[in-house]
Write a protein that binds this DNA or RNA. Structure first.
Lengths: 245, 245
DNA sequence: ACATATGGTGACCGGGTGGTCATCACGATG
DNA sequence: CATCGTGATGACCACCCGGTCACCATATGT
């Protein structure tokens, strides 16, 4: 068991940021086991001993670095939820989705680490983090769906857990396809610009709204989540937390 | 550059199978880099030199082992597609989904390796395999959707690429949730039995069919993919390839 | 001028890795 | 019996890893 001195907190902010950024990048690129403390210190130009003075262990370094990222992400999503509390259901979905896109653009390393953790057993904090994310997702989507059903915006006979599962699957995959070109099943999400992303998001949300077989799509297609409501919600989401991102 | 003798092909089948199974399990558990040839040969009780005589490289071993798995999977899916060629659209989806579930149950190691490869850069064959899978998925779903639209079973104004994306997302996630408990967003897919899986699949397909907001769901809800058609299609899928699986 | 404290350093350690190769065991052939 | 070919073997190699620790640089207090 190595000593866990708290020396890192006393460092000046420039150096702290440099260390965190380099470590984050290394973990994002190589996962946990394949990441190398030697490479991190080489890239930083500091001695290996320093890292172990700061964090005690490679795992300690990872915990510190990653928890930072999760903290930032949580702050952002909470802001979006609050800001769109009284908007239309699909507008809220759209806002959450675009907030996710923006977060990935701002902090690609955090998201890449998250993706690696999903399917890589033996990752420190795996159980903790993933259970947290799952709970967060359920607590985020389920009340939104239930509210919208009470408000008559969704069909009253909707199977809520199944609907939440489908929503979660599509939203998640949308972000994954943006980040990992291979997850793209035909839409060009990985390479497109913001406008293309928004068009694709609208198309997917339209499918979710009216279904594949749903007939009589007159009203469903007309008040699609576009221009007014949706853009407004996305804008509102954008200024939620500027300092942090 | 190590020699690539073809000694492995001359071995008797028992030993070949033992070697392939042990290697597959090691890669499934540890991914590629973290997998250890030492552990494989220890578990097998053979000398390390033998493995390198057979496959030349750790990467050569992986290629051989994984391509075997992909081959089996492809055979299975093609059989299902043929067997359900003239069934209802959602019944075909259901059959493909349940065939995926069965494959994962029969060959969990192959699927675990595939999941690891998705988000782990620097995996041998990553580009090749994933591009193959993506192309396969697009070629599988898109014609099914287009046929169903021509036949009037899906709304005529459906955005095909978006619909395929949504379908791909939900089907994939369904299998992932079955395999990786954390991907479960509320349905209990990871721990349930076959009947529970089928119920969940029907619920998700119902959401996909009628959408979240689709009103006038009389006909959509009534001829849901249940009992008759769906079960029939799944049965048909089951006896597609017995010898291979 | 000296003592103290604090952060920084990098050679070093034990261990595990992918990969090599001289050697062996053994059956078939002359 | 001798020769040959083929597969099996495991000690060995160079390399990299996470982690340690005795030592150094500097600034401050007295």
């Amino acid at each position: 068991m190595p000593k866990a001195s708290r020396t890192f907190e006393n460092l000046d902010e420039d150096k702290r940021k440099r260390v965190l950024d380099a470590s984050m990048e290394e973990f994002a690129e190589h996962g946990f086991h394949q990441a190398s403390v030697n490479r991190i210190v080489d890239r930083l130009g500091i001695a290996k001993g320093s890292i172990f003075k700061y964090f005690g262990t490679k795992e300690g370094l990872f915990r510190y670095v990653f928890e930072r990222g999760v903290e930032v992400f949580g702050r952002r999503l909470r802001a979006v939820r609050e800001a769109t509390a009284d908007a239309d259901f699909f507008a809220r979905l759209r806002a959450a989705l675009m907030a996710g896109v923006e977060f990935i653009e701002a902090h690609p390393a955090v998201y890449r680490i998250y993706l690696k953790m999903l399917f890589q057993e033996r990752f420190p904090l795996r159980e903790t983090i993933l259970a947290e994310v799952r709970a967060h997702s359920a607590r985020y989507l389920t009340p939104m769906v239930e509210d919208a059903m009470r408000g008559g915006r969704l069909r009253p006979d909707l199977d809520v857990p199944a609907a939440v599962f489908v929503l979660d699957a599509v939203l998640d995959r949308f972000l994954q396809a943006r980040a990992v070109e291979f997850m793209d099943a035909g839409l060009g999400l990985a390479g497109t610009d913001r406008a293309g992303l928004e068009r694709a998001a609208d198309a997917c949300l339209a499918v979710l709204r009216a279904g594949l077989a749903g007939m009589g799509n007159g009203p469903a297609a007309r008040n699609e989540s576009q221009s007014t409501t949706a853009t407004n919600a996305a804008d509102v989401a954008e200024n939620g937390q500027d300092g942090a991102c």
